[in-house]
Amino acid sequence: MLLALDAATVRFGGRPVLDAVDLDVAEQELVCVLGPSGSGKSTLLRAVAGLQPLDSGRVLLDGHDQARVPVHRRGVGLMFQDHQLFPQRDVGGNVAFGLRMRGEGKAQQAERVAELLELVGLPDAARRAVAGLSGGEQQRVALARALAPRPRLLMLDEPLGQLDRSLRERLVVELRELFGRLGTTVLAVTHDQGEAFALADRVVVMRDGRIAQSGTPLDVWQRPADEFVARFLGFDNVVPATVEGTVAVTPWGKVPVPEGSGQGPRTLLVRPAGVRLVAADAGLPCTVAARTFQGTHVTVHLQPQDGPRLAAACALREAPETGDAVGVEFDAAETVVLD
């Protein structure tokens, strides 16, 4: 393992921010830690970098305990949330900083700077002032600066946090390609699930300083570990249920569930695609409370006579109007019994 956290714990004023976290990152793996703000994910990165001392537990790089290794000797890269480019240096000076600290020759520095600026798509920017860069350009310079000293582990703190949506989506693709090509080991943190799923080989969901779930993006998306993860991923159709065989009894009535689901009192998730709209006199009677346009489909918010609201994904042409009365049926393939 390149990076291993062993029961890493950090407390701020008695409150655990990292609570006995175990995490392994293999060579060339792209791991994304996902969690709401305050879940401890930035502290995780700072602990690995050595900027935040551990209260207990260990951080190991290549199997070596890092407790006595100061920040500047750990050989890891960290890209800060708001980039933290050195304002008094130009772009080239920023990218060359880590190389200079390692005492590399001027010629090698210049060569490596040119190479990296080329890599991040900013050739000829070496003499520009950082104050004049756009958000996306700063982002690329910060990346080039972090990559320049060839860190064994690259950490990214909300790498695309402050960029606008279209730029973000483009950069996610670029970053994934780039890291694949360079064989970089990456540990990123983000609160944006779309970003995490698009970027990572493995997603780690954090909650209150603990790891709530770890798995491939597909795993996590298809089988959220618990109600917290499901809701954090944006699923709202989550209710308590009692499962017997392939039927769950819920506030929405009886909902079919896949075979082999856990039995007894559980929590049930119905993905919006599993909520089918039928004629008003069939299934669970609901009223359309609101509809939101999502681009490829419409999300229809339904108010049953009893029980919490339901969200249903609907094709554009078939979406009912607000106030319409509709019936609802459930699709067993799109339901998941949690816990």
């Binding site: 920040v71 500047h72 890269g77 933290q84 000293p149």
Partner: peptide, 27 residues
């Protein structure tokens, strides 16, 4: 002087006195 600028320099391999020279002094 943003503490994280100093941290950025440290992560890039600058020892404490070097951080002062490279980050604080120019500012």
């Amino acid at each position: 002087v943003d503490e994280r600028l100093r941290e950025a320099a440290a992560v890039l391999g600058a020892a404490p006195w070097r951080v002062w020279r490279e980050v604080d002094l120019p500012m």
